[in-house]
Design a protein around this nucleic acid. Structure first.
Lengths: 183, 183
DNA sequence: GTCTATACAAGGATAGAC
DNA sequence: GTCTATCCTTGTATAGAC
């Protein structure tokens, strides 16, 4: 099969497959058959499976670096505001590429053994959100919950004030009014 | 080699290896040689490599469910506070087990192609933290940054107010005073 | 319970023809 | 540029002796 843009097709199909089943779970054979070519053709256009992945996320990588560069000359206050808005927009723009990376975890969590986790996490998120039912509050709750988990892994050897810092940022982030219950 | 607690030893060594090199990157052969037994012995005690992993994270899973259950009878306000403190403590307690899951991503990010990402993320975190240098502010910054990324992936199909919600929670969470610069 | 030996499948990657 | 065929390695799992 002859094409003008085999390389692009490989990237497109690889992105689709990585997004659906994850990077590790996608084999060169899978990509090849999706594209309609052989594994050898894949490896003619890309040095390795790894290289395909890197090619996919590379534009996003560059944009993060650009954002960081743009922040450098700014004073602390404006830098923070620019970082917040710039980062949110960046992440939204490259959500598919980021999902490629996060899917490695989602694959793990989708096993039957983890099924009971979902309702428990939902209950936690609702509690974080003050049971308001407001989507904005649930987003905030999700940010806090996921952020806490990530930071603990990131600072796995921390022996200091991590606990207090986490609790304080969570309280700050979740300052919406709580609906009054009567009993 | 005869042991009273081969099963425990398998879990211990598997946890160590999974934590160091990741789940996927750890083979049954690796675990067997760390324990000092054969692959066949591993598979006598556990149905599969997967079963070893599940056995490792299962206690953490149960604790999350327990926490969610404890929150159920509480009113919104107390539930939120109990959720925050309970969740932080839970995550800190089971950090190693959680790291097992997150290592799948960390493996990806540790490749050479992603090396330039680290300084860029550090700059973003510093900007989020208002360049205060305070560790507590950097923890807050990390929570917000990681939380935003996770939520965007989680709500990948969102077409609504996600952007605004994210920006607002970030501003709320990062309300520390910013050092004044003179120019 | 534990071992050795082995079977089996699948993945990434390469050689060389066309 | 693309293919077929093949190689090598690794992971999972089983059989059967001890």
């Amino acid at each position: 099969m002859s094409r003008t843009n085999t390389r692009e097709e490989i990237l497109r199909e690889a992105a689709r497959l990585f997004a659906v089943v994850g990077y590790k779970a996608t084999s060169l054979t899978d990509i090849a058959s999706a594209v309609g070519c052989s594994k050898a053709t894949l490896l003619y256009h890309f040095e390795s499976k790894d290289a395909i992945f890197v090619a996919l996320v590379e534009p996003a990588l560059r944009q993060v670096q650009d954002l960081a560069t743009r922040l450098t000359p700014l004073a602390a206050g404006p830098a923070r505001e620019a970082a917040i808005v710039g980062f949110v927009d960046l992440v939204l723009t490259y959500r598919s590429e980021i999902a490629l990376i996060y899917n490695e975890i989602l694959q793990l969590l989708q096993r039957p053994a983890f099924a009971p986790l979902k309702p428990a996490v939902d209950a936690l998120v609702a509690a974080f959100a003050g049971r308001s039912g407001d989507p904005a509050d649930e987003v905030a709750a999700g940010v806090v919950l996921a952020g806490i988990v990530t930071m603990v892994v990131d600072r796995i050897d921390d022996a200091g004030d991590l606990r207090d810092s986490l609790i304080r940022v969570a309280r700050r982030a979740l300052v919406t009014p709580v609906p009054q219950a009567e009993d």
